[in-house]
């Protein structure tokens, strides 16, 4: 397309593309069977909820500490009602079903997703790497109230982030929002003081250690229960803080990793650098 293409033609093209999208969408939905939004039981992926709330069968070797995951594959077990804070030894035991899917049943997915985030942040650092540019004119410092206030707020925000990812298996939240909340607190520190310089190598090594902890927890599952990222700890009573096996451990690792990673990314983007190579 040449550079003198008329504006109008481009807008008409875009509008027709959007119109085709809308028409195709509604044509696809007309084909849906009647009452598709009312037929509840058929649409929900019941397997995960059933597995999560199903009472565990007899363990193969109940005396061993690592025998929790060595369960036979159960195709169909009768449903027994769950009582909050009473029922014990569920298969996963997390009160939050989304958490049990993210960390336990699809934990390998989550490992890949954390890897994608690591690669993206590494790309940002590789692109924006350089030595800090000298500022020509003097800029105004933030006021004392801003400086002190962000420091006080950071401690509270940090505690809140830790709360979110420690309680990920009981309440909404988990490692990803918890880590992001911590990174937001560090962003506040950047706003409070001009030229705030956190320990970049420390952040990166902290993040690497958290990632290694994730993989090591997975390997413990591999060597004790014969599958990678298997739940090797006792699951306890549903609703207690010490329940759901290794879900809380993995979410703590994810939370620290995401928090350190995003803080390092904000640090890289906020310092104005100049190129060292061309």
């Amino acid at each position: 397309m040449r550079s003198d293409t008329p504006e109008l033609f481009k807008k008409i093209f875009a509008l027709s593309a959007v119109a085709i999208l809308i028409v195709g969408f509604f044509l696809a939905f007309i084909e849906m069977p009647k009452g598709w939004s009312v037929n509840v039981n058929g649409r929900v992926s019941r397997l995960y909820i059933l597995k999560n709330v199903r009472t565990a069968t007899k363990l193969l070797d109940s005396g061993s500490f690592f025998a929790k995951g060595m369960k036979p594959l159960r195709t169909d077990v009768a449903y027994t009602p769950i009582e909050f804070k009473k029922t014990a030894n569920l298969e996963d035991g997390a009160a939050n079903v989304v958490t049990s899917i993210v960390v336990d049943y699809r934990g390998f997915d989550t490992l890949g997703e954390v890897t994608v985030l690591f690669l993206a942040v590494s790309g940002v650092m590789m692109l924006l790497f350089g030595k800090p540019r000298k500022e020509k004119k003097k800029k105004t410092e933030p006021s004392l109230i801003m400086y002190v206030g962000t420091r006080i707020a950071f401690s509270i925000i940090f505690l809140f982030g830790i709360y979110i990812f420690v309680h990920g298996h009981l309440t909404p939240g988990g490692g990803f929002p918890g880590g992001t909340v911590i990174a937001s607190g560090i962003l506040g520190l950047f706003l409070g003081k001009r030229g705030y310089n956190p320990n970049h190598a420390g952040l990166k090594s902290f993040e690497a250690l958290s990632g290694i902890a994730f993989v090591i927890i997975g390997l413990i599952g591999l060597f004790s229960v014969n599958s990678f990222l298997a739940n090797f700890l006792p699951t306890g009573i549903v609703g207690n803080l010490y329940s759901a096996g290794f879900v809380a451990l993995i979410y703590i690792a994810i939370g620290m990793k995401v928090g350190a990673e995003l803080a390092a990314m904000v640090d890289t983007m906020i310092t104005d650098t100049e190129e060292e190579w061309s």
Binding site: V38, V40, R43, I49, I82, F84, A95, N96, G239
Partner: peptide, 16 residues
């Protein structure tokens, strides 16, 4: 779906 509850166990929230 219109009658859904959150997928989180609490004392009052039964998933099944």
């Amino acid at each position: 779906h219109p009658n859904a509850v959150m997928p989180i166990y609490t004392a009052t929230n039964h998933l099944m």
